[in-house]
Amino acid sequence: MGVYIAKRLLMSIPVLLGVIILVFLMVRMVPGDPAVVMAGEQATAEQVDAIRAELHLDKPLPVQFGLFMHDLAKGDLGRSPRTHAPVSEEIGARLGNSVVLMFTSLLLATVIGVATGVISAVKPYSLFDSLAMLVSLIGVSMPVFWLGLMFILLFSVQLGLLPAAGTGTWLHLVLPTVCLATVPLAMISRMTRSCVLEVMGQDYIRTARAKGLPERVVIAVHALKNAFIPIITVVGLQMGNLLGGAVLTENVFAWPGLGRLMVDSILARDYPVVQGTVLFIAVCFVFINILIDVLYVYLDARVRFD
């Protein structure tokens, strides 16, 4: 297992290096002089030059990249020329909000998704199953930002039930959570259904029934524990979806998280922050994936060798 993890970590190095190069180049290929944009409309030529010097934009690209990597190696992501705060501080300030949003969404998606999936599988082709699968099919293919806007239109503008944007109370969390949870929920529900259906067709389920166990015991004790392993994998795989969806959701609902910080920084040509957030998210993504793989191998091994 240790060797496996080490191998996965080594393999992630080229991925992260690729991300770094890509982000570094992309930020610099966006049209418009970042120093001018950042300095603002009333800025003097000296101010613009000062920002340009601060960001090393007056140096050639390879030198810029060398300086960037040099700082990165020391764990320094640089400072935001906008707020003058270190990028790591900017990320730290928003990270909590993103984690909260992703956690509530994943919780919602897992609880409701697994529940509907199990109910669907227990009574396949029933009215509930057909409806749930139709709704989840729509859910899987729903563009997150459009869904968010529709939520705001309906629940905030028309009905005035929930705040459309910002943070503060738990009510603020409702719409972004539901919006971000929709796609993973639909996926988890569909996958749970097929996992449970497959398990329900196994011989040992027939044995459990032949023993005269009540159907709820057959499902809860004999079927679910076996369906649990593939379901965990599916839930884990939704983490990637969640990271991407969070960027969109945070922007639609003005949720002050990492995704919002990233988009704001792109618009302001705040290079260091863009680089920092993208890199941070990429690292998270890679590590979550390694974690899921390790978890899966571990769970699978338990069944086969325990």
Binding site: Q202, R206, G212
Partner: peptide, 19 residues
């Protein structure tokens, strides 16, 4: 079932719950 009338099956390898 499993009380007054019991049944055993052809597939002993898969008829027991692995977990």
């Amino acid at each position: 079932r499993g009380n007054k009338i019991s049944m055993i099956f052809q597939e002993p390898m898969t008829s027991l719950n692995p977990v």
